[in-house]
């Protein structure tokens, strides 16, 4: 990897800093510039899970905030018309609920003072002063789902309410689980036909499986502490019970590393554990863009995924015997 001669080599080694071109997919309206408003802009905000600074994108009118997810294969480059771009990654920009980003500030301020405060008193950050822009996001009205509210009209004060928050998160999980079902599996008429996780569905991916996965996704926007409480609240163990049983029965734990990196290289047609590997990989990629701290935390999820595949593979053999 040592830079040999050219500028291009250098670009490759130093990665992001020297790059000058990005392939981006974003909602239609995200990049629209509105007359009299500032251009859409990328801004560093504190990530609610890792507490590190991560780039978020505010739309021109400032009413919506988006995150940037990088998807990258092990090897890849783009052909763009009659040119080559070495970097084969794709940035996917999706809207973020600003309440997730505001929640750590709300929790912190309530812990420190335990009194009602207005949002502009709560959402303050010396390291990431731009967080003030969250106040203008239309989704911020959702803050009422996670806090006690005093006052009315323009002057409203808030105090963190954990049980309200957990209910809100539960709704989030259910909403996401429902979408997972629709996305991965065509359940339009309760039919069995699916596309995304065909194999896991045939193996009986239950509502609980969807919920657990959805809760894992939601947890990517929560502190470790809150994430644990969420799993307790919805009554789902982060590791499936069936799995632990399978493990007790002496089933071999699957080769985690091999599975994790199997994204493109090995493609057996009928690998039932695959759908779960796939979802796991997706998380891996999400985390790949994020920080070491987040990677460390994501171990929790991997444990869940690993065990599920161990449930699928060894058991049928036993039954045949």
């Amino acid at each position: 990897m040592a830079p040999k001669t050219s500028k291009k080599q250098k670009r490759k080694v130093s990665g992001n800093h020297e790059r000058d071109q990005w392939m981006v997919i974003a909602p239609d309206s995200t990049f629209e510039s509105i007359d009299g408003c500032p251009d859409p802009s990328f801004v560093k905000l504190r990530h609610p899970k890792t507490e590190n600074g991560v780039m978020f994108l505010f739309s021109s009118d400032g009413t919506s905030v988006h995150e940037v997810m990088r998807f990258k294969r092990d090897f890849g480059s783009w052909f763009i018309n009659d040119s080559v771009q070495q970097d084969g990654s794709l940035e996917v920009i999706t809207p973020v609920d600003p309440v997730f980003l505001a929640l750590p500030y709300l929790i912190k301020s309530s812990k420190e003072r335990n009194k009602f405060m207005t949002l502009d008193q709560i959402i303050l950050d010396d390291d990431y002063p731009q967080c003030i822009r969250l106040l203008h996001c239309s989704g911020m009205s959702g803050i009422e789902r996670v806090a006690e509210v005093k006052g009315s009209g323009d002057v409203r004060a808030y105090r963190y309410d954990e049980s309200k928050t957990l209910d809100w998160l539960k709704d989030k999980v259910e909403q996401t689980a429902a979408r997972l079902g629709q996305t991965d599996v065509h359940v339009a008429s309760g039919a069995q036909s699916t596309t995304f996780v065909r194999s896991s569905k045939e193996q009986g991916a239950t509502e609980e499986d969807y919920k657990r996965y959805a809760a894992g996704l939601v947890s990517d926007y929560l502190s470790a502490d809150l994430s644990t409480k969420l799993f307790e609240h919805i009554g789902i163990k982060e590791v499936s019970e069936k799995v632990s049983k399978a493990l007790e029965n002496g089933a071999e734990p699957p080769l985690k590393k091999a599975r994790m990196s199997s994204d493109i290289k090995t493609e057996p047609e009928e690998d039932y554990s695959k759908a779960f590997t796939a979802s796991n990989d997706m998380k891996k990629e999400k985390n790949g863009k994020l920080t070491a701290g987040q990677k460390a935390l994501s171990k929790v999820d991997k444990k869940g995924m690993k065990s599920i595949s161990s449930f699928f593979s060894p058991k049928p053999k036993k039954m045949e015997k």
Binding site: G139, G142, R145, R179, D184, F196, D281
Partner: peptide, 20 residues
């Protein structure tokens, strides 16, 4: 990876839309 990237847009919209 790429197809999952596209699926993420739909999942994210469910995860991040208001729930009230």
């Amino acid at each position: 990876t790429i197809q999952r990237a596209m699926a993420w847009t739909s999942i994210a919209s469910a995860l991040h839309s208001p729930v009230e």
